[in-house]
């Protein structure tokens, strides 16, 4: 039963993606790699949305939610990169453990 690919298989891939993204966000020092971890987490959530959309009847609402997540991820990446560039211009570093003050 487990050998035939079904809903559970897609959910397991998504669980692994989510955990890897979480690990990335928690351990890496570079702010840009932390952003990559957030993208991994968003992708895993999207995978869940689309898997449930596919195996929950022929409704497309899950795909709509996934599209909105992609839209917001694009906006998030643009804003976050702008902030990171600003921080680099101020502090000459993007290591999140060294940026511990709001102004120089």
């Amino acid at each position: 039963m487990m050998l035939e690919v079904g809903l559970t298989h897609f959910l397991l891939v998504s669980a692994l993606l989510f955990s890897l993204g979480l690990y990335c966000v928690m351990t890496r020092r570079n702010a840009i790699i932390v952003l990559m971890g957030i993208e991994l987490i968003l992708n895993s959530a999207n995978l869940n949305f689309i898997a449930f959309s596919r195996f929950g009847g022929a409704k497309l609402d899950g795909q709509m939610a996934a599209i909105f997540v992609i839209i917001l991820a694009a906006a998030e990446a643009a804003i976050a990169l702008a902030i990171v560039l600003n921080i680099y211009a101020r502090f000459a570093t993007v290591n999140v453990d060294e940026i511990n003050q709001l102004k120089e």
Binding site: I32, E39, N43, I70, A73, A77, L81, L85
Partner: peptide, 16 residues
């Protein structure tokens, strides 16, 4: 993702 966000991230990597 590939055409937009990844390119943005690469720009971020290169600039910082």
């Amino acid at each position: 993702y590939v055409g937009g966000i990844l390119v943005l991230l690469l720009f971020g990597v290169m600039l910082t």
